[in-house]
Amino acid sequence: MRNRLKVLRAERDWSQGELAQRLGVSRQSVNAIETGKYDPSLPLAFKIARVFDLSIEAIFEDEAAAQDG
């Protein structure tokens, strides 16, 4: 799933490790999500949204909806 995690992280000048610490996950998890190799669960997606103070839709792109629309 495409997402804006890398951009949002760069805007805040956070490293992957820093974001991982804020989320309470491993740096590998942040890297896998950022590169679109792993889609987070809904609870983790909500947590990511909370950390960036954004909605889930503002971070993750709903590719199926984009194709339908």
């Binding site: 996950v25 491993s26 998890s29």
Partner: peptide
């Protein structure tokens, strides 16, 4: 394991 990615 609490890290869902590592668990997967």
């Amino acid at each position: 394991e609490t890290d869902e990615f590592l668990k997967v």
